[in-house]
């Protein structure tokens, strides 16, 4: 039975499932990473994802326009991010708690809107699979990597882009400076407040796209609480990835592929309790992080509100 796991079908299946499952995590975690890098912890990702998922789904249902849907989701995400920013930056509220508040708000609102505006579970035509010319024709590899929908490509492209922005641009330098030593950054003329607003709004937008990637690209349906805790996993993956885009990519792929693996274990009838299979990705993520050697302490000013002296 166990040997059944090492066949080409299974390994291909695990990789392609893993890529799809990792997509929402990549958007949400990289958004969260920018926020944390500048010193803001946002535990409200789940709520932002749900609102984004609902918004995009609703727009597609009413207009059929996929790009409008993603734009609308981005706008809602930006508003949620702005609200989170106002509360944690301007009003200096405890970040963790404010995030829990926005999580509950987003969950409640997306459910309420769904019930009032739609009411029935219906599927839609979401982002189609786009086969990349040439690359998509490569046997096996092409099928796994280059026959996905647009948002999947975008999620994986986001990783190098985020790395570049964070490490090679002035903006990235400012973000890191604000997260490490806001007082020093301030004295050098960097607007701590403005940088943090930027990252938190960016985080809201990306979380919202993460939700949209579920409702209009991967699943093409909306249901209440459909994110099922993925927003919290996304926050956890930022720690797994030590606040680095490629670290997050590794974490998202590890978690998602183990999740795909446990489905295969069940499908192949390997006799372990289903609950044990389901908890595998959670256990392995902790174990891998515990046993890995390189770990950062994280941005020094994380969760600390900034206030100018005097």
């Amino acid at each position: 039975m166990i040997s059944d796991l090492f066949t080409a079908t299974v390994i291909m299946g695990i990789i392609s499932s893993g890529i799809r499952l990792a997509t929402p995590y990549l958007f949400a975690s990289i958004g969260e990473m920018f926020g944390q890098r500048s010193g803001v912890l946002n535990l409200g990702v789940e709520g932002q994802m749900l609102l984004g998922a609902f918004t995009a789904y609703y727009v597609v249902l009413k207009t059929g326009n996929l790009f409008l849907a993603v734009l609308a989701a981005m706008a809602v995400g930006a508003i949620m991010g702005l609200a989170m920013g106002f509360v944690t930056i301007r009003l200096q509220a405890t970040q963790g708690i404010a995030g829990i508040g926005f999580y509950l708000f987003g969950m409640g609102m997306s459910n309420l809107l769904f019930q009032k505006l739609i009411g029935v579970v219906e599927n839609i035509n979401g982002f189609p699979i786009v086969k990349i010319p040439l690359l998509g024709d490569i046997p096996v590899i092409g099928e796994i990597f280059f026959q996905q929908n647009l948002l999947v490509y975008l999620a994986f492209l986001l990783v190098p882009i985020a790395w570049f922005v964070l490490n090679k641009t002035t903006l990235g330098l400012k973000i890191r400076a604000v997260g490490e030593n806001p007082e020093a950054a301030d004295s050098l003329g960097v607007s701590v407040v403005r940088v943090r607003y930027f990252t938190v709004i960016l985080g809201g937008i990306l979380s919202s796209i993460a939700g949209a990637s579920l409702s209009v690209a991967l699943l093409n349906v909306f249901q209440q609480n459909m994110t099922a805790g993925q927003g919290f996993i996304a926050v956890a993956l930022v720690y797994f990835g030590s606040w680095r885009p490629f670290g997050i990519l590794a974490g998202a792929l590890l978690f998602s592929m183990v999740n795909a693996l446990q489905l295969w274990i069940q499908v192949l009838g390997i006799p372990i309790p289903s609950e044990l299979a389901v908890m595998m990705p959670y256990i392995l993520t902790i174990l891998v992080l515990a046993l890995s050697l390189s770990k950062d302490k994280g941005p020094s000013a994380l969760t600390k509100a900034f206030e100018r002296e005097g």
């Binding site: 509950l104 409640g108 459910n111």
Partner: peptide, 25 residues
């Protein structure tokens, strides 16, 4: 009213209370 409203209200209360700390401080 749909119970989802209750969850949303719960969240609003948390956000407002955590923000009110600012004025108290």
């Amino acid at each position: 009213v749909p119970s989802a409203l209750i969850t949303g209200l719960n969240g609003l209360v948390v956000v407002f209370v955590v923000s009110s700390e600012y004025f108290r401080k």
